[in-house]
């Protein structure tokens, strides 16, 4: 499963290391914000990623599954 996460903020460089399994899209969404995407193994993995967003204080705007 591949997922796409749209966040309200830009991800600082340090924080990107917290998501080694995700790539960041180079195409910005709107004026601010960032798009991360990547392969998600299962539901616990997905929630783990969401938790990490939360831990780092990011605002998740959108989350959607990408066609494989």
């Amino acid at each position: 499963m591949r997922y796409e996460f749209i966040l309200a903020e830009q991800i600082p460089e340090v924080a990107r290391a917290a998501f080694p399994e995700l790539d960041e899209s180079t195409v910005p969404v709107g004026a601010l914000g960032s798009v991360m995407y990547g392969h998600v193994v299962d539901a616990p993995h997905l929630h783990g990623i969401l938790d990490r967003f939360q831990d780092l204080g990011f605002t998740l705007l959108e989350l959607r599954r990408l066609p494989d």
């Binding site: 340090v14 924080a15 290391a17 917290a18 780092l56």
Partner: peptide, 14 residues
């Protein structure tokens, strides 16, 4: 603080 810890953890990994 959990926020600080999360960032520090990411820095450690990076």
């Amino acid at each position: 603080h959990v926020l600080l810890r999360s960032y520090l953890g990411a820095m450690l990994e990076s």
